[in-house]
Structures are given as C-alpha cells and as structure tokens.
Design a protein around this nucleic acid. Structure first.
Lengths: 197, 197, 197, 197
DNA sequence: AATGAATGAGCGTTCATTCAT
DNA sequence: TATGAATGAACGCTCATTCAT
C-alpha cells in the first residue's frame, strides 16, 4: 500500500496555501522553488501534484474564484433595497481591499506573463471564472440583465484597479453610493430592464 | 571630438520609439536586447542613455501619459451632449482596445515592485499620471466633480480589465451607452452636482 | 500470506512487454515512470523486479537478442541460392526497418556508459549477443568463414546505420542484391573459402 | 568600438574545441555547463555564439564532416589500383579507429536524443554531410555509381559500428582486403558499371 | 559616444531512485 | 508484494547588466 495520502485533498490544501505566496510576489516573480519552500515540500513534489506553474495557477484560479463567489454572496446577501446592497458592497470592498487588490494583481500579472498561445489554453478557466462572477453579480443585484451586470462588475474591477495603482483619493463607499444613486435613477426610468435577460 | 549628438533630444527620440516595443510585448516580456535591436542600437548604447530597464520605462510612462491625454482629449473633444460624448468614448475604446490593454498590463506590472525601494520614484510618476487622467476626465465630461470623474475613470479601467481578462461578451459601445443613460438619469435628478468640486 | 506470484515468470513477462516501450522511444528517452505505466504497474514494483533501469535493459538485451536470432533465422531460412538468400535479407530489412533502427539506437546508446564501472557487466551481455548474431550469420549464409560473416554483418549494420542517419536514398533491396552479386563473383573465384573456418 | 573579437573565427574555434568534449561523453550526456567549462567560457557566452545545444552540434557536424572529407581524401588519394586503395583504407581505419568510433557514437547519440520533430530540422545538415561522404567515396573509388558508393560507405560504417560495440575479433585490414577482392571480382564481371551514375 | 562580448545566478522543469505504508 | 508520494541535483536556457575596447 502506498503512503496514506489523499491525493485530491492534499492537492487542494496545497492550492489554498499557494494563494498568499502568489499574492505576495505575483505570478511572474515567484518561483516554483519559492512556492515549494513556502509549502514545505520539494519542487519534485510540487510537480507531482501540478504539471506546471501555469497549471498550478489555473487550478488556483478555479478554486479561489469558486470560494470567492460563495463567500461574497453569503456576505452580501439578504439586503432588500439597492441602496442597502450598495452600502454592503462598499463595506465588502473596504473590508477585503487588500485581498481584492492582491487577487487583481495576481490575475493581471498572470495574463501578462503568458504569450498568446498559452493564454488560449487558460482561457477556458478564465471564462468559467468570469461567468461565475457575472452570475453572482446578477444574483446580488436581483436582476438578469447581462449588460448591467457587466457594468457593475467593471465598476468594481475598475475601482479596485484605481486603488491598486495607488490612487488614495478614491473612496469605496462614496463610489458605491454613487453607483447606487445612478442605478436607482436609471432603473426608475427603465423599469422594464429588470428581469430582462 | 565627440560625435555631435544632442543627448537629451536623442533620449526622447529613443523613448518615443520604445513605446511600440513595450506595447507589442509588454514590460515583462520584452528584453533589453530586443529593445536595443528594435531601436537599431546596441544594448550598451541603451544603457548609456538609461540606467536600467525600469528607469527607461518610467521615463516612457511620463512621456506617454502626457501624450495620451492630449491625444484622447483632441479625439474626444467637441461633443455637446453626454450621449454624444459616450458614443465618442465607445468608439475610442474600440479603436484603441489593444493599446489600452497593453497600457493596463504595463501599468499593473509596474506596481509589482511596490515592496522595493524604487517605489518612491515610481509612485510620483504614477501619481502625476493619475492626476492627469482625472483632470482630463473632468474636462471631457465638462464637470468638476471628483467623485464622478473617479467613477467614470474606474468604469473605463474596469471595462478594459474585463477585456484583458478575455471576456469577449463585453461590448464597449453598449457599456458606454449604458453609462451615458445612467449619467443622464442621475444628473437630471442632481443638477446641482455639475460644476461642484 | 503473500500473493501467489511466480517471481521469475512475472519478471520475464515484464521484460517482453518492455521491448516495445524501449523500441518506441529509445533507451534514453523513455522514463521509468513511462515504462511502469506502460506495463500497468507502479515504479515501485518495477524496482522490485529490476534493480535499475540499466539492469532492466541488460536483461532485455539478453532476452531479445536470443529471440531475434530465432525469428530472423526462421524467416530467412530455407533458401537455396545466395541470390535467393539476399532477396530474403532485403525483404527482411525492409519489413523490419523501424525495429532494426530502434535496436541499433538502443544498442549504441547503451555503449555510452563505457567509462563507468558497469561496463564489465554490460560487455559480457553484448559479447554474448554479438556471438549469437555472428553464429546466425554463418548459419544463414551456409558458410563458416568468420571474416566473411563479419563482412556481411558489418554490411547489414552499416546499411541500417545509413538509414538511421536519415539517408533516404539508400535502398535495402538494391544493396542486398549488390551484396549477392559481389558474393557470387567473389565465391566463384574462391570456392575453397566455403566451409573454411 | 566593441571588444576586438572576430565573431565568426571565434565561433569556429569554439566548435573545433567542442569535438573532443562531445566525443568523450556523447551528445546526450554532456551538459552545456560542461562544454562551457571545457571551453573556458561561461554558459552565457556559449549561448551568445550558439542558440542551442542542438545548433551547436549541427554546426559541429557541418564543420567536422567538411574537414573529415578533405583529410581523408588527401590521406587516401593517389592510389592506382583497387587493391592499393583498400589497403590504404584499412590503414586509415586502423589509424583513426578511436576518432571514427567517437564520431559514429556522437552522431548516433545525437539522433537518438532528438524527438522526430527536431530531427527534421537537423536533417538538412545531415543530408549535406551524407552527400559529402558519398561524393568523397565516389572520388576515392574512382567511380560514379551511387549504389556502389553507398555499399562501400555502409561497409565502413558497419565495420566501425562492430568495433564500437566491442567486437574485438574484427580486423579492419582483413575486412578491407576482403572488400577489395569482392569489388575486383564483381567489377571484372560488370565493367560497364564504372562511370555509370 | 558607442559597441557587443561576457557574465552567472536563477528560471521552469525532469526523473531515477527511495521508502513509509 | 506492491504502491506512489517524495526527493533534489541537474538539465537547457535566459537576460539585465557590466566593461574592455
């Protein structure tokens, strides 16, 4: 009998431990040796569980984006009005600022470090993650309009990006409240949009 | 007698030629050798004019972000209504998609070095550039409200980020029109906001 | 109670299954993992039956060169004239081209380790195999002249080597027929050579 | 002005120094680090002159096979009869046995270490070298018959291969003399073959 | 001012072998 | 007997930077 290790479970453990390592240095800057060391295993073991650095990161994206959505929805759910939702979103952004910046950074960094060929391989993973986020945004807003969901998602991404770039003047809550007011004003004039897919 | 060369002028020439090279491959992916080759000089010459790859890039950021703003404003200016402005913005995004994505890459990549001592130098460059972009956004919208400008800038950043991440479902024009409608609806209810700083 | 396994018999089974794997990829290119996978066992099991990759290969050489000779002789036997023999040889070479090239590869590759201490072990294996091939050549030609046998064997090796090197202009049948004519012309003038040892 | 180095000349110097290194360990076994060390340069410098290990070897093949042919022809030329030629060939083989074995070993070893894709890239180099050898064989024999040239070349390859495999019973002179007698007997009956292409 | 040869630490990755179970 | 997780030195190769000329 082999050493008693639950391959799948251990793989997932390694993945979740990996996130901080990627977040600290970025996809391109961290080395497999450093990851291995950070996880307390050898590079050989790392490659026993993941065929490549890219694959490791893709599995991380898969895993994290899944958990992200679950966490965010449970944290943001249960609000009635748009205004309440936006306040909750603002609080969520403030609370998870560091995490979200890291996640954004790591994601962009990965895309940059791929040449167009290998990026295509990854695209399925990214598409899935994107869909999850879009779906979650719809659920959160209580609407099914894809364009609107994309808009809100873009806003969230953009506002995090501004922070990532060091713009300290931006205020998450202020921005979310503005978004709320704009959504309210817009939806008041376009009631039919709700539940339109 | 040395060759008659205007050091400063030649440096600027090199920088402006550099931009396409960075834009084509990204900061991380292009090598100093490739840059030198692309400029038709030796690596030695490159290092004669720029102390490091990072310094070269910083000078590029300074130069380009200035030009960017000028170009964008001249391209987007002269529209009367918000709706027209947003259509122009949509066209601008569509036309410059590749460029904007590269620029976003390059910018995020540059923030990777936040831990190192070079941060201070870089952050000044970035802050200046950010201010330029904010100022230009105000000018473009014809308002002086910082929060609103940040909102629009975040939206633009976010929408580009979505594309960078490979979300092909997002439609720049569609998003810009939505932004226009939301702004119109919002401003109709908040006329006092205009020219409020 | 241990599993009922005839160690020796199982070892031989593994060896014979191995040959195709070595033949497909070559000694240097195939990994123990791949061999194990190809045999449907674990690497651990492989090392349970064979102390090393080299040992596995040596046992394979022993086994295969024995079978080779038997197969070749049965395929080539029963011809009367030299001309017939040479036509049969040509067909044999054409039919087994891939196999013979692989075998040549694998054999030369193995001689790479001549500096190491393992040479002694290996050379015995190789000498035995060489003797088998020489003996078979004599039998095939129906003569006992060692020089002539070496000549024919060298020719066969050489013609395979040319193919291995990518010379596509060489034609096995053409070469064999030439050999036949040369042998006929030579033997006609040197009848005494036959059965001379 | 750069460091005064004649790039091309230095490259050729490195190549010729390389041969022994490859010959001592084989293509697959020697590492770029070892080659660099053996040449007294850094790995970086090695890669400054050669884009890859494979390219280095290909250039070596090109260079060596050219010199080989020149050397061999000058050493073997000037003989009148076939018998004399074959005696000269025998002496040549005896004198250069070590070198020829190494060369054969290195060549086969290289072929083995390529997967079929990269082997195709190399094939032009090998084809050229093969043609050189064939042409030289024709010149040496004083005939233009390709089949006969291939035959003799195969014989030479094969007889070297036998030695490489450790067959100590084979005698180069004996084999060459046999080849001479066979050729004489064959050509006496096929005078028309001479100068037939 | 300009060149490009030279460096070498470090990259992602491989793989024969070991050994706890 | 059998497993497969684990190892880690070593591979081919890269590239920002230095410096003799």
């Amino acid at each position: 009998m082999p050493k008693i290790v639950n391959h799948e479970q251990y793989r997932k453990e390694l993945i979740s431990k990996c996130f901080d390592l990627f977040a600290q240095k970025g996809y391109g800057a961290i080395t497999m040796r450093q990851i291995a060391q950070g996880l307390g295993v050898s590079t050989g073991t790392l490659y026993h569980y993941f065929p490549s650095k890219q694959a490791l990161f893709e599995q991380l994206v898969e895993e994290i984006s899944e958990q992200d959505v679950i966490t965010a929805l449970s944290e943001l759910g249960g609000r009635e009005t748009l205004t309440e939702k936006m306040t909750a979103l603002g609080n969520y952004l403030i609370k998870n600022e560091d995490y979200l910046i890291k996640w954004t950074y790591v994601w962009v960094d990965f895309c940059q470090n791929q040449d167009s060929k290998t990026l295509l391989n990854s695209s399925r993973v990214f598409k899935r993650a994107n869909q999850r986020y879009q779906q979650a945004t719809c659920e959160f807003l209580g609407i099914e309009n894809r364009v609107l969901a994309s808009f809100v998602l873009s806003f969230v991404n953009g506002v995090i990006l501004e922070k990532l770039w060091g713009d300290e003047t931006i205020d998450f809550m202020e921005q979310c409240q503005l978004l709320g007011e704009m959504l309210n004003a817009y939806l008041a004039k376009n009631l039919h949009i709700i539940n339109f897919r």
